[in-house]
Design a protein around this nucleic acid. Structure first.
Lengths: 408, 408
DNA sequence: TTTTATTTTTAAAAATATTTAAAAAGTATT
DNA sequence: AATACTTTTTAAATATTTTTAAAAATAAAA
């Protein structure tokens, strides 16, 4: 029995069969989530006797799902064998889709990358052809990898915008009215598919493999072209009713007349975001301000150019703009702090590259505008996983979903 | 063995003893959370065989924790016995403390009130005497009730302001630096004490016994003298790191120069709250506007007077002010909707008495300012439990805490 | 180096739960 | 009213798990 089946429902319908299956599952989950363990440890943690656990572990050992890591030393007495999940018994695929590129990676069960392709050119369009091309790219990637397809447990695909992970629908890209997008893609790939919002996947990536220590209530800010947050409450991703949670960028906060991407006026994004930064930069130039950035007639100015202008060129206009914007961001983030009383606020997205240029103004605004007790409770950290965060998050989500059948 | 002990850790330290204890616990929890059941139902739900469950139920029956409700009819075949928790085997005490009054109630295990005293005069002061008086009132209440103290599982006390429920500290009232307030009160009462934030308890009350059907992601708005929210994610109260979550009223949203209760400028409460309504009313009078409300020189004007002015007197100034304020409230609530994508928004607190005077402006502002998908997902309801909501919530919290040892 | 204490592992015995089957107590149908 | 059919309950048989105890392995102490 391979790991995929092992974590499914038992084929044995008898009560004792179910219980035995559950014990085996529990052992696997214990080894996956809390690392290697001895039989004595498993026995006490899972409230089952040593002989029973021994029998179950031996079964798993024979099936190749668990491996014996040899004896370890302890305080005295006979040295126990340490058991581990066989790292090559299951793999996870993670994909992050942008408008012009996609990133794809394959991880083993210990969340080590087997392979990772960042920023593969792919033009995301709302058409059947684009969808098929997308699936072909993934199928190709799987074939060229060294891993058998049947050992891949599943794939998680991150899109921006509104994603209903439970039902498998995407509303901004590849929208299909009747059939869940997960079903369509799954048919093409021959794998279980999970859809995820990009920001949420990033948050989970940082939680599992990134900057998060043991914090359980976390706000992850995706500060990029647009603005959104990923929320973790009590160590679990928060989705909301249909998975649209975290749309911080479309909070009505300003009295301006700028039309947001979402169609409304006065959204946070209209004054605090990558795209508004570009607008502000152009306006500043018109007002006669100067910058070291050379504007190419044909090429579109990107917010990344301004960010790099601040870091690499130390351009004063760029620095002024990003500082002012970060300060504003801090002010409005303080609302979230008061509401969530989080353990941790992670600044992620393209703007996190700015380091202290962004972090310090945010921090001082937070101190000014949030409640003292709440502010004292919270750590502020910068995202550390960089461009890989989305793919890492996607892989972690598939793994998590495999471990807990009620994962949404 | 009484129910209190039953839901504690087993006295039998052997593995089989622990498991047997867990089975008995599970049966009790099942009967408490999902209502009466037959042995066959319990057996299949708890994955234990009929003889085992029969044995356990008979034990519980003998101890008086479970009662036989007689035979029920079914589709055919032998009629099964229905078993229920004995409603008189455990009781919960709930207290809500205001600045001038407190409410106290005693519920049985089925959340039926044995007795309820609303708005008992009590002056809440930050002194040792006030605390002792408070405890004496509760002790008196218990003695005068028909219930034996040893059958009371615990007490939950709701305070406004910052409450750390996990550690048992209260920061705004009865603050004690070194020792948790729960410990001090527990010593006086001889009962386990749980401290709770008032808004959170109200939210939980509506969830368990009020307007909530099966919604799991809920924002409860406590719109009263101050403004705060109670958050439920996936059917569980959300606390945040130390239990300070929900401080919506202190979001910095305005550019005014009004000093808030919290000491900051521009908080939501400075323009949207009971106390700001009173200020606005007085300002309007100064500006020459007229109202049917007679201002007494000595007596302080309360926001409740203005609310009642709108409902009962149909006073145009009162109506204008509460409408304008509710509209603003809706606008800023839309931020929360976009972030939480809740199933349900419950309008509670004193302002909920206004009914459609408050609900309609809020609803229209929500529609205008929140994302379409998010707004479509959400139901808007008015709190239904009225003044009892806090005490009901408190009782439900004690019960919940008893049922799940990891409840915070 | 030998002994002692500690811990894991293995094996047999004892306890406990599950299965299986039959009995009991009903309902629905002929 | 008798029969067939369901479903719960009880009882005996079977399976599994926990206990208990002894054996094996090793670290620390004498």
């Amino acid at each position: 029995m391979n790991l995929k089946d092992l974590l499914d429902v038992s084929k044995d319908n008898s009560l004792s069969g179910q219980k035995w299956h559950m014990l085996r599952q529990s052992i696997v989950k214990r080894l996956l989530s809390a690392g290697n363990a001895t039989i004595a440890e498993i026995s006490s943690e899972l409230q089952s006797s040593v002989p029973t656990v021994t029998k179950a572990v031996n079964e798993l050992l024979q099936e190749g799902n668990v491996v014996d890591m040899g004896k370890i030393t302890n305080s005295g007495g006979r040295r126990p064998s340490l058991y581990s999940i066989n790292p090559t018994c299951a793999f996870f695929l993670g994909v992050e889709v942008g408008r012009t590129h996609m990133s794809i990676g394959l991880q083993d069960i210990k969340n080590e990358f087997i392979s990772l392709d960042l920023r593969v050119p792919f033009a995301l369009k709302n058409s059947q052809e684009s969808l098929l091309e997308f699936c072909a790219l993934i199928n190709n990637y799987i074939e060229e990898s060294s891993v058998e397809k049947k050992l891949i447990v599943g794939i998680c695909i991150n899109f921006s915008g509104r994603i209903n992970s439970m039902e498998g629908f995407s509303y901004n890209y590849f929208f299909s009215e009747n059939r869940p997008l997960t079903e369509i893609i799954s048919e093409q790939l021959g794998l279980p598919v999970h859809l995820e919002n990009d920001t949420r996947a990033m948050a989970f990536g940082e939680y599992c493999e990134g900057v998060v220590d043991d914090e359980q209530n976390i706000i992850f800010l995706n500060y990029s072209w647009g603005v959104a947050i990923g929320i973790m409450t009590d160590g679990k991703l928060y989705y909301g009713k249909s998975g649209y949670s975290g749309e911080f960028g479309h909070s009505t906060l300003f009295e301006n007349e700028i039309i947001c991407q979402c169609g409304k006026l006065g959204c946070l994004e209209t004054e605090i975001s990558g795209w508004s930064l570009v607008r502000q930069f152009k306006e500043a130039l018109k007002e006669g301000k100067h910058s070291k950035i050379e504007l190419n007639e044909n090429e579109d100015l990107q917010h990344l150019d301004i960010i790099s202008g601040a870091i690499n060129l130390e351009d004063s206009l760029c620095i002024e703009l990003v500082t002012r914007q970060s300060e504003k961001m801090g002010r409005y983030l303080s609302i979230l702090l008061n509401i969530f009383n989080p353990d941790l606020l992670v600044i992620g997205g393209d703007f996190s590259q700015l380091g202290d240029f962004a972090l310090l103004p945010i921090q001082s605004a937070l101190k000014k505008h949030s409640l003292g007790l709440v502010n004292r409770d919270m750590k502020l950290k910068k995202s550390t996983l960089g461009h890989r965060v989305g793919v890492i998050g996607a892989c972690c989500i598939v793994k998590e979903k495999m471990l807990s059948p009620f994962f949404k």
